[in-house]
């Protein structure tokens, strides 16, 4: 996996092979990045915009990628930053307090024609929505994507201890919400 990515990075940095290598990179990572973004913004159209922005950014900055982290970590970090930037811009546009985009995201969830979960899954999504952005991110990455804390630590630039605590608090809050709305 790592050597495969190293070869891909080398091809991406080579002007003659860049286009083809980029196509390979997109094919390889598009789904994982899509779901990572989708779980944060919920709506498909927003996710599509952010995913495109993520890959455009990757294209523009591949020359500066110093391979200090794995390609996967670097892509996740760009996607996460793009997602957070998008959510913050929505908050600013709708004059919401910086920690409250819940209403906008809940509307996104309800109006999304591509949501096909049952009642309990809708309830879980609503509970996740109530979490602060960072906790939501950590919860989604751990609970759904099962990313290791060490890797998450590199992506989010946060200590493993802080991530574990964040996940624990998030799980407790969600459990409480599910119990109260039963």
């Amino acid at each position: 996996m790592k050597s495969e990515d190293s070869a891909l990075i080398a091809e991406l940095k080579d002007d003659n092979q860049r286009d083809l290598a980029f196509h390979k990179l997109v094919k390889k990572y598009q789904e994982r990045l899509y779901w990572h973004i989708r779980k944060m913004v919920l709506n498909h159209d927003d996710t599509d915009d952010i995913l495109q922005n993520t890959f455009i950014k990757v294209w523009k900055s591949i020359e500066n990628f110093r391979e200090e982290s794995s390609l996967f970590t670097w892509l996740y970090r760009i996607a996460t930053n793009e997602t957070i930037t998008f959510i913050n811009s929505k908050k600013r546009r709708t004059m919401l307090p910086l920690n409250d985009a819940t209403d906008y995201l809940r509307d996104n969830l309800i109006s999304d024609p591509y949501f096909e979960g049952d009642k309990i899954q809708m309830k879980l999504q609503e509970a996740i929505l109530l979490l602060p952005d960072k906790q939501r991110l950590v919860f989604n990455m751990k609970y759904f994507d099962e990313i290791k804390y060490e890797e998450m630590s590199q992506i989010l630039d946060t200590s493993v201890g802080a991530l574990k605590a964040s996940y624990h608090h998030a799980a407790k809050k969600i459990e409480e919400y599910l119990r109260n709305t039963d």
């Binding site: 094919k27 598009q30 879980l124 969600i174």
Partner: peptide, 26 residues
């Protein structure tokens, strides 16, 4: 132990994507 209600829920994506989305994305 910490979140029994949460652990009862199936861990699957409740979202889907438009047809051929990933095929056309590139």
């Amino acid at each position: 132990n910490d979140a029994p209600k949460l652990s009862e829920i199936k861990k699957e994506h409740p979202f889907r994507v438009p047809d051929n989305y990933f095929e056309d994305f590139s």
